[in-house]
Design a protein around this nucleic acid. Structure first.
Lengths: 117, 117
DNA sequence: CTGTATCCTTAAGGATACTG
DNA sequence: CAGTATCCTTAAGGATACAG
């Protein structure tokens, strides 16, 4: 195992990278095997090409995504989750499940709150 | 159980509210019982008074936090997680654990990536 | 103590056009 | 196909001052 540099990377910063709207979308989209750029562009609802690129680079830099370039014409690039990211996906699934189960309740709470104000 | 209005509240929006840096910090800070405003201001690292207020309101509106005002002098306000939020906290804990376990690995990955560029 | 109000700065992100 | 580059708009957030 490598040096780890644990102090260099506070948890909040890690979460900030990983828990963002776009990051979650990308990780979920890549959970079932390698995905291509255009595929992500279509799958991750509402993301722009720019944001997709930026987030892919960020995730790759953090060691969550591996970028594989096939030198064909036209070019083909695949993004694959690393083991670390797969483990993350398990945690994210919990979060997603919670959101799914409670979205109705949340919508109600909002309606009540807004009505009271 | 109420009407649920499920369609009114897409999962990505729910996640956006709940997975933010400040929201996570507040929920974690409130996990061990009711907390007061100033307590949160000190506990949630780096949050400003303004951001704290805004996020508390948002979480309250979503039905994750209950705000209790004690009409004393000086005033005392306590924020308590709802059952729904407690369940969320369980999921967040998984995420936090992951971040804790992999922060070193992530720092390494970044160092490698940055060295290669 | 628990906020609100205002102003201001920075960063996130969209739109569009262009490239290997 | 898979991006990059540029410009521009909006939203997030900090600083400060004030109030119930």
């Amino acid at each position: 195992m490598a040096t780890q540099l644990a102090e260099a990377c506070p948890i909040v910063e890690v979460l900030d990278h990983v828990a963002g709207k776009w990051s979650i979308g990308i990780i979920v989209a890549a959970a079932n095997g390698p995905v291509r750029f255009t595929e992500l562009e279509r799958t991750v609802e509402g993301i722009s090409r720019r944001m997709l690129t930026l987030n892919l680079r960020k995730l790759e830099r953090d060691g969550l995504l591996v970028r594989t370039v096939y030198p064909t014409v036209p070019p083909k690039v695949e993004y694959t989750l690393t083991d670390m990211a797969r483990e993350l996906y398990a945690s994210l699934s919990g979060l997603l499940g919670w959101a799914e189960r409670h979205r109705g309740e949340i919508a109600c709470a909002r309606a009540v709150y807004d009505a009271a104000s």
